[in-house]
Amino acid sequence: MNTKVLWSMIVGLIVLNFLTIAYFISNQGEKIKEVVSISNADVSSGENVAKIGDTQITRQEWLNELEVRYGKETLENMIDKQVIKQMAEKYNITISDDILEREVKMIKTMYNTLDNEEINDEQSFREQIESSLLLEELLTKDVVISEEELEKYYNDNKELYDIPKTYQLSHIVVPTKEEAEKVNKELKSGSSFTALAMEMSQDEFSANQGGVLGYMSEDIEYLPAEYFETAETLSENEWSDPIKVEGGYAIILLHETIDGVKYSYDEVKNQIRRQIAIEQMRGSISVQPFWDEVEVSWFYDEQQ
């Protein structure tokens, strides 16, 4: 494999890991805020939130456990977001809508294992990507890469900037046409595609995920060509009629379509600069170097 391509994949995985961790912690923070709100509002239940036989769990015990499990990570993530925001304002760094849209497309199409839970909240997903891009810009703002090196990187790795038409799909696979028609009927009556996939799909790998296949393009050889032909005829969030496939019948659900695009050198020039600069960095991508600059102090300092 081309060394530059390998490094680009590594950098991409680092960024995706940053996004996934941030997204997970963000979700945990939302859950904590939700349960705290519920516990504060539900005064009729007294101080106990659960009873197991003669044993009771108090609201305070419950909240203490949430803080121990998620408190530090959630607070650190909240601080990181504010540090990135303040540092970006200080250095007048912004991410344009075009750049953000391109990054969203590239992440979705390059890492087709992103599942629905990770990207269902599109706004939160985009905010995490924007935050990651701002951090990259901050970390590499003083790095200068020659035009010759930038152009060579682009010419050596044009395939990285050629996005094929991509479909985000789920499916349910059953042995017979009769079962497929039964699934279709239940969907029309309002049943959940996810629940039906978990209950009825014979594709064990995707059934456990509610039928989710992820973001797929026609160069994915293990999916039937009929999936892409059918997806082309569907609107987003529409499911298909039964499709004859090897071993049975399938119903596919189209979540999203991403049109193919080839990005020019000028469009991705600064992205390449960041990629090369990050390749040359030692250590992981982190907000920590900027904490002192914005004078962060937090609760956990007092415990050290």
Rank of each mutant, 00 (worst) to 15 (best):
I95F: 09
S26W: 05
V144M: 09
S192N: 07
V212F: 05
Y23T: 15
P242G: 00
R274G: 01
F205H: 03
K90Q: 07
V296F: 08
Q202G: 11
N270M: 13
K182A: 07
L6R: 10
P224C: 11
Y227V: 09
I10C: 04
K269P: 00
I10P: 08
L114S: 02
Y249S: 04
E47Q: 07
T257C: 01
T233I: 06
A41L: 12
Q28V: 07
T230E: 14
M106E: 03
K90R: 11
P289G: 03
Q168G: 04
T257F: 00
I21L: 15
W291H: 06
E73A: 15
W298A: 05
K81Q: 09
S131D: 13
F18C: 11
W298S: 07
D98S: 13
L234R: 01
E218C: 04
A50D: 11
E151D: 13
I172M: 08
V287L: 05
S206T: 14
E47N: 11
G190W: 04
L114G: 07
I129L: 08
L169A: 08
D142K: 15
K51C: 03
K269Q: 06
N270E: 12
E256W: 02
E122P: 05
T94A: 12
V268W: 05
D162K: 15
D266S: 10
N40S: 06
S286G: 12
I172F: 03
K269L: 00
G210Y: 01
E30F: 01
E127K: 11
G12M: 11
S45N: 14
G214W: 01
D142W: 07
